[in-house]
Design a protein around this nucleic acid. Structure first.
Length: 343
DNA sequence: ATGGTTTTTACTGCGTC
DNA sequence: GACGCGGTAAAAACCAT
């Protein structure tokens, strides 16, 4: 029972109930030495004689987990030892949480007296939990981040970093004068870019309650004040999403990425919008792989005008033709790579 | 605020199905 | 004739200064 002892939470009464039952299910065999009753000691994984203390069997329990995991993410998912702390909850999930069901640890209903008591505890616990304005602020912001992230299909780690960024903004008193929505949106935008799964400003502001203007202002502010290091979005990171939205093949995806790489090496990408480049690459790739996709379809999923796609994709194809010179250019660029966004 | 750059809007012409 | 595509000019948006 060490596992449940370390927990302060009583989130899952039924599981512990099962464990109890399992434990009382003892062997009733007799000792080979003195015929005394044998007892199973589940704590140490031994079967011992109750009379003479002879250990009949030992190490019969595998103390390791009964599951297997092949990477750390899987391990996180399967391990149920302790509650993981998470930045997605305003108190990192460490505060006491009183269940809403009026049941005790064994799943039995409480008496009405107990119920009243628990209700009072719940009230007070909630008041302490979200005591000051910062906590309440954070709570709302994290809810907002969560909502937007799911609307955009962003993975959990992005939400986590967004939470961290927001938390930092809060700690550095960056909030006054700015809306909670604005800052949470900016935090999400920043973390999505940091994680290499960027969403364009348009996409973000579509699910956010704040307009694009406020978002960009807040975003810039946050990035500056927290000195976050966010590189300009890599066009390639948009490609997989666009290709899949257009039902393109892996072949097309690879081709698009190759085009972008050669374009980058030719130095024609600087100053151009990454989304536009990605869209153009996807379109160009669809031509090269004979997968019919129209410009308007690409412009639809990428939210980029057809004109931009036209302009970019021509440049991409030209760059591809002068491919052999990449290597030289690459070397030249790398020696003076400090300013590849110069303009 | 300003100037330079990029993107968008709107419109037109051309070829094909 | 609708559609996909290409081009252009002017407006709008963006960015560093």
């Amino acid at each position: 029972m060490t596992e449940s002892d370390t927990r302060t939470q009583t989130r899952n009464p039924t599981q512990e109930q099962e464990q109890k039952q399992h434990q009382s299910d003892e062997d009733i065999r007799t000792c080979p030495e003195c015929d005394g009753r044998l007892a199973t000691d589940t704590e140490h994984g031994e079967t011992v004689c109750g009379d003479c203390g002879l250990v009949v069997e030992e190490d019969e329990i595998d103390h390791g987990p009964e599951w297997r995991a092949f990477d750390s993410a899987e391990r996180d998912k399967k391990s149920r030892v302790g509650a993981p702390t998470t930045n997605m909850m305003h108190d990192k999930g460490l505060s006491t949480n009183i269940g809403w069901q009026d049941k005790d640890a064994y799943g039995r209903s409480l008496s009405s007296r107990q119920r009243e008591k628990m209700q009072r505890l719940r009230t007070w616990n909630e008041r302490f939990r979200t005591r000051d304005s910062k906590e309440r602020n954070l709570k709302q912001a994290l809810g907002e981040i969560d909502r937007m992230a799911s609307a955009l299909g962003l993975p959990e780690n992005v939400r986590e970093t967004a939470s961290v960024i927001y938390r930092r903004a809060l700690e550095e008193d960056l909030l006054p004068g700015r809306s909670i929505e604005g800052v949470s949106t900016a935090a999400l935008y920043a973390s999505a870019r940091q994680a290499g799964t960027p969403r364009s400003l348009d996409e973000i502001s579509r699910v956010s309650r704040v307009g694009k203007m406020e978002l960009t202002r807040t975003y810039r502010y946050i990035v500056r004040e927290l000195s976050l290091e966010i590189q300009p979005a890599d066009p390639e990171s948009y490609v997989p999403r666009f290709v899949s939205q257009l039902d393109g093949s892996d072949e097309a995806e690879r081709t698009a990425k190759r085009l972008l790489r050669s374009a980058k090496n030719n130095g024609i990408t600087s100053g151009k919008s990454p989304v536009g480049l990605a869209a153009a690459a996807v379109y160009a790739a669809s031509l090269l792989t004979n997968e019919k996709v129209t410009q308007s379809e690409v412009s639809e999923v990428a939210n980029i005008s057809e004109v931009t796609i036209r302009n970019r994709y021509k440049e991409l194809l030209e760059a591809e033709e002068s491919a052999p010179r990449w290597i030289i250019l690459e070397l030249l660029l790398e020696s003076s790579s400090s300013q590849n966004t110069a303009h």
